[in-house]
Amino acid sequence: MEQQTLGQRIREERLKLNWTQEQLAEKVYLSTAYIGQIERGERSLTLDNLVAVANQLGVTVDYLLSDSVTPKDDRFNDLWRQLINNRSEEEKELAINMVKLMFGYLDAASGKDPSCE
């Protein structure tokens, strides 16, 4: 994960609130020096601290990490998303059930035990 990107996002959100590093540090029970190191990308946050910072800044953890996590390039996931895009919840549920049923038949035909996965 790119610590600098995460730190920059935290800094941007803190500045939007017109807070100093000290004010944010007090709200999340961390040291001002630690907040500075986070914002410069020199230190990483524990999950608990990341959640606390996100909550105080009024943003989601997902938002803070959105530029830090690179999604796996997976053409099958992209294709699935395209296929179900703009479908109703009922149609999505039906498609999932059909795929499960199809894989069940494929597993049975190959002698594969699906409970082993």
Results as ranks from 00 to 15, higher is better:
61 V>W: 10
61 V>I: 09
62 D>T: 10
63 Y>K: 13
63 Y>S: 00
63 Y>E: 09
63 Y>F: 11
63 Y>R: 12
65 L>R: 04
65 L>K: 03
65 L>S: 01
65 L>I: 08
66 S>A: 13
67 D>G: 08
67 D>W: 00
67 D>H: 06
68 S>N: 04
69 V>C: 02
69 V>A: 02
69 V>I: 10
70 T>V: 13
70 T>F: 06
71 P>I: 05
71 P>V: 07
71 P>H: 08
71 P>Y: 08
71 P>G: 01
72 K>S: 07
73 D>M: 05
73 D>P: 02
74 D>N: 11
74 D>F: 07
75 R>M: 07
76 F>Y: 15
76 F>H: 11
76 F>Q: 02
77 N>V: 09
79 L>A: 12
79 L>S: 06
79 L>F: 10
81 R>K: 14
81 R>E: 05
81 R>N: 08
82 Q>D: 12
84 I>L: 14
84 I>K: 06
85 N>S: 11
85 N>A: 14
85 N>F: 14
86 N>P: 00
86 N>E: 12
86 N>H: 12
86 N>G: 01
87 R>A: 01
88 S>R: 06
88 S>V: 03
90 E>R: 13
90 E>I: 13
91 E>P: 01
92 K>F: 04
92 K>C: 08
92 K>Y: 01
92 K>V: 14
93 E>Q: 08
93 E>W: 10
94 L>P: 01
95 A>K: 01
95 A>H: 01
97 N>Q: 15
97 N>T: 12
98 M>L: 08
99 V>F: 05
100 K>S: 03
102 M>V: 05
103 F>N: 03
104 G>A: 06
104 G>E: 07
106 L>V: 14
107 D>A: 15
108 A>I: 03
109 A>K: 05
109 A>Q: 10
109 A>Y: 01
110 S>K: 03
110 S>H: 08
110 S>F: 03
111 G>R: 07
111 G>S: 11
113 D>H: 04
113 D>I: 00
113 D>V: 02
114 P>I: 02
115 S>A: 12
116 C>F: 13
